[in-house]
Design a protein around this nucleic acid. Structure first.
Length: 408
RNA sequence: GGUCCCAUCGUCUAGCGGUUAGGACACCGGCCUUUCACGUCGGUAACAGGGGUUCAAGUCCCCUUGGGAUCACCA
């Protein structure tokens, strides 16, 4: 048993996509392997973009993949008083200050800096202001050190270091009083006792300023592991135009959760030459140090292969249950008649790569209004039944010709 | 542009100083099979380039090139 504490902290601004799912999976796997604690936290401080549908979509996706959490879900919007408390503390300690620069002023400064080839960072106008300006709106900025270096040993990427002079005084509280991401994430991870932060590597550049915040607050700095991102076939960030990115879309396309889990874990992680891993094997063999450092391309063909593998080896009873909704979509309810579903499944397992393919194949057993592939029928139906078949097709209003010339 | 990161077959990867550079997906052949599929056997295919270090470099160091991330009162 260990007291490692991990978390998955998505922001509810859309469905659970494959990248997030993999991050969640890595966290879950490590927690289960080490007997630690896995926490789910919803980062909904951006009230305008966060939706309840997205929250539910995240729960649904995690449930489908079998990623159960031990604590939470926690919602950041319910913790605003806590964040305010810490802002107050930093202000009192002189580690943060009120900045009265308007968004427009800052924007203008940023533009001119960019134009003149300078770094577009906050110039510190309000850094040494003495006393408040009553009635004027302000944001709160963390007073960052201007020299020295901040470094950390990433569990995946190794040592990464930054010169503090590259950092500027980040805003921790907006003018409307709400806290910002880099602040809430630190307060939450610190107060929830997170010991290891596994997240996407688009956060690498946020890490040094977060480390500085931990130190300013007097909390121990957790270990970090930044997992590389998932790319599309053209090596750009995976997005809708590469195909489905929502994990639930894969369920709807007839994929099995164990295939998705197996595929996702092998994208970026490996264990010798092994390709197929049961959930128990993953819990036993997974290690964050074995995760690769470079981004990986999402390969739908391999996912399909894995899905076929799990369908072939799957329990017919369970596959039958998973197949029912696909059958109903096709106007078939196996409960009202026809052969036993599990026996139907057994005849289809070898040749079905998805539950959609299996459902299409199963129609044969439950409906009469389907047509044989003309070529195959011509080749394999006995000559004497061909006229019958043609008559049937004719009756149904379909009339592909089946001639005896094409019969061997 | 600044900062940070990355780099083995088309793709996912093994490799952790000495290998005929291995496996998997995909692809191409053979076998099996009255179709398809499954299975099985085999094949094509990679260390980005250049300097070092070393008896020896895919493995260590530097540079170049290429790719990515990030520079918000988003997360």
């Amino acid at each position: 048993m260990s007291n490692i504490r991990l978390r998955f902290a998505p922001s509810p601004t859309g469905y659970l996509h494959v990248g997030g799912a993999r991050t969640a999976l890595f966290n879950w796997l490590l927690a289960r392997k080490l007997g630690g604690t896995f926490i789910l936290r919803i980062e909904d401080t951006d009230v305008a973009r966060s939706t309840e549908e997205s929250v539910n979509a995240i729960f649904e996706g995690m449930r489908w993949l079998g990623l159960d959490w031990d604590e939470g879900p926690f919602f950041q919007t319910e913790r605003f008083p806590l964040y305010a408390e810490f802002v107050e503390k930093l202000l009192k300690d002189g580690k943060a200050y009120k900045c009265y620069c308007s968004a427009e002023e800052l924007e203008a400064k940023r533009e001119s800096a960019l134009r003149e080839g300078r770094k577009p960072k906050y110039d510190g106008t309000c850094r040494n202001l003495t006393g408040d300006i009553p009635g004027k709106p302000f944001v709160v900025r963390y007073k960052a050190p201007t020299d020295g270096i901040t470094a950390f040993d990433d569990l995946i990427k190794g040592r990464i270091s930054f010169n503090n002079e590259e950092l500027d005084d980040l805003i921790i509280q907006r003018s409307d009083g709400t806290p910002t991401y880099n602040f809430t994430v630190v307060i939450d991870d610190a107060t929830m006792g997170i010991t290891t932060v596994i997240r996407g590597d688009d956060h690498v550049n946020n890490t040094p300023r977060q480390i500085l915040l931990y130190e300013a607050l007097g909390y121990p700095v957790p270990r970090f592991a930044h997992v590389p991102m998932i790319l599309g076939a053209d090596k750009t960030r995976l997005s809708k135009r590469h195909g489905a990115t929502s994990v639930m879309a894969y369920r709807d396309m007839g994929y099995l959760p164990e295939a998705m889990v197996n595929y996702l874990v092998r994208l970026g992680w490996s264990h010798g030459d092994e390709e197929i891993f049961s959930r128990d094997e993953l819990v036993e063999k997974f290690s964050i140090e074995a995760v690769g450092k470079s981004a990986g391309v999402f390969n739908p063909d391999k996912l399909l292969w894995l899905n076929h593998h799990y369908i072939k080896d799957g329990d017919p009873e369970r596959l039958g249950e998973l197949l029912v909704p696909f059958l109903k979509e096709r106007g078939v309810d196996p409960a009202v008649g026809g052969p036993a579903l599990s026996s139907v499944v057994k005849t289809l397992q070898e040749r079905s790569r998805t539950l959609i393919e299996m459902a299409d194949g199963a129609l044969f057993f439950y409906r009469d209004d389907f047509a044989y592939d003309p070529e195959a029928a011509a080749k394999f139906l006995k000559p004497e039944v061909v006229p019958l078949y043609e008559a049937l097709l004719d009756h149904l209003g379909k009339a592909p010709s089946l001639t005896h010339e094409s019969v061997e």
